[in-house]
Design a protein around this nucleic acid. Sequence first.
DNA 1: CCTACCGATCGGTAGG
DNA 2: CCTACCGATCGGTAGG
Lengths: 205, 205
Amino acid sequence: MEAPDITAALELEEGKPEKETRAEIRRRKLLTIASDLFATKGYDATSIRDVAAAARMNSASLYYHFASKEEMFVAVENASVDKIHDRVSAALAARVTDPWERLEAAAVAHAEALLDRTGFRVLVTLLYPPGLSEGVRHRLAARRDQFERMMAEVIDTLPLADDVDRFVFRKHYLGGMNAVGVWYSPGGKLAPADIGRRIVRVLKG
Amino acid sequence: MEAPDITAALELEEGKPEKETRAEIRRRKLLTIASDLFATKGYDATSIRDVAAAARMNSASLYYHFASKEEMFVAVENASVDKIHDRVSAALAARVTDPWERLEAAAVAHAEALLDRTGFRVLVTLLYPPGLSEGVRHRLAARRDQFERMMAEVIDTLPLADDVDRFVFRKHYLGGMNAVGVWYSPGGKLAPADIGRRIVRVLKG
DNA sequence: CCTACCGATCGGTAGG
DNA sequence: CCTACCGATCGGTAGG
């Protein structure tokens, strides 16, 4: 019933998940490899030859699956936002009603998506590669905004004091979540879900 | 009495600020230019020719001031951490005693240092350039840790509920602060100091 | 601080 | 999906 990680993350990208062609499987595998390299070394420092080598392919062959390195970035970035969006959205759909519990459910799902190292790895980008066209930038930003609006709905129902700025709350929450990948240590004391819960505990005051 | 921006930020780097040689002035100017380009386009996407052009120099001339591009990165990174450390440290030295007021003073100074666009610009790095030696990485991390320990002292004195994890508090606070540069808009409603104050208000609950 | 380079590597293409 | 390339650009150096 549960689709595997990457399928869920790339559903929008890949279209119907029922019949996946060999080419689609290959593209998905390349995207997973690319997400891992981009997340580890950064986009600019990752050459298409690095991606090809990790996939045991000739670098020229990548161009059968992607028109350009930029298209690879856009695909990884969109799949990243979608993975987080879909997991958090599913957690919220479980229909918890208490506002703080809703935020907790979202934070746990968010941290789990972000820190999941099996399969496709979420890319946290704070600076788009220079040279991305304005159109592409806008499309990427729109997808991020969709997720941010979902979080705004959760945060706006929180019972906060009048002088707490909910815009700053949201930006700070999202910024802090994005940073989690920097200090998380796999196999350490805190599992991703613990991190999500404890962050919300901090914010609950 | 107040040293200008960059001098304060680079004091450790540059040694005695009293007599600055022409070469030191030049190096400082190059660092300011580099910090701006690294912050705007990213380290990898900035070529030494970009830095040289902005300084109206031939790219070969940079190597009189810096042994390598990597050395430029290390200098910019250290000066960034120092700028934040020195400003926050000065704010805390004003000897406020209330723990939440101390955190607010630190957050305001932190946001101001981070968002100051006049002169040297603080670089927020979430991934060091690959190829940095382990030794260099450790020296950079040690300087960051020094600042983090200072914040830990402030946060550890906060009157928080027993089940609030102060480690997670600190990591989330620091992560959220680092992200501020992404959503801050110069000349907008919120000045850097407002942002610092409102973030602490959010955490105060 | 400049002129004049160099070897390596990059993203990408032609043609099969 | 591979072989065989290409032009551009990169960080860096020699020599002054």
